[in-house]
């Protein structure tokens, strides 16, 4: 079941468009914002609000990389693995984080504190390597910075 708040936010987006289905991506993002990810149940709930089928919602949901159809941890670390960051050494960064948290790309730490994912170019190539944690952007990363950084996310 969607919360009243979620429904309200979705309805607000719906109003902007010629028909409700247009708000599909917005709705997915809203629900994900509240719950961290999109469960099968959320797919059905969103479908109901937008008056389309679960299949239509899921078809869209599974297309976009920033819609999570599997549960994620409380914090999501996205490490840029595109070419400039590769040149600037994202791999050692990844290795370090991976070892530290005991998870590889796609994994969630057992305490559900972190999920680690790769992401493509974050448009900050002159300050590579780059990563995002939740909504926060970090650049010119070094291994030294990592420990300090992760501490902020509980």
């Amino acid at each position: 079941m969607l919360t009243e708040e979620e429904k309200k936010e979705i309805q607000k987006e719906v109003k902007q468009y010629p028909y409700p289905a247009v708000a599909c991506i917005d709705a997915l993002k809203i629900v994900q914002q509240h719950r961290g990810w999109i469960s099968d149940e959320s797919v059905k709930d969103i479908a109901q609000v937008l008056r389309i089928s679960s299949e239509e919602v899921d078809s869209v949901a599974t297309f976009y990389s920033r819609i999570y159809r599997k549960p994620v941890g409380r914090n999501v670390i996205l490490i840029c693995d595109s070419v400039s960051c590769m040149i600037m050494g994202y791999e050692s960064l990844y290795q370090y984080i991976s070892k530290k948290l005991g998870i590889s790309f796609g994994g969630t730490s057992s305490d559900r504190r972190f999920t680690l994912l790769p992401i493509s170019c974050l448009g900050d190539c002159d300050n590579a390597p780059v990563m995002i944690i939740n909504n926060d952007h970090f650049n010119r990363l070094t291994i030294e910075k990592i420990d300090e950084l992760l501490e902020h996310y509980k």
Binding site: D40, V43, S53, S54, E55, E56, D58, S59, T62, F63
Partner: peptide, 19 residues
């Protein structure tokens, strides 16, 4: 029909039902 669609993307596209 509403209950058959394409899911995912790239060479992982899948044609079927939601469940």
């Amino acid at each position: 029909g509403k209950d058959l669609n394409v899911f995912a993307s790239r060479n992982h596209v899948y044609f079927g039902r939601h469940e």
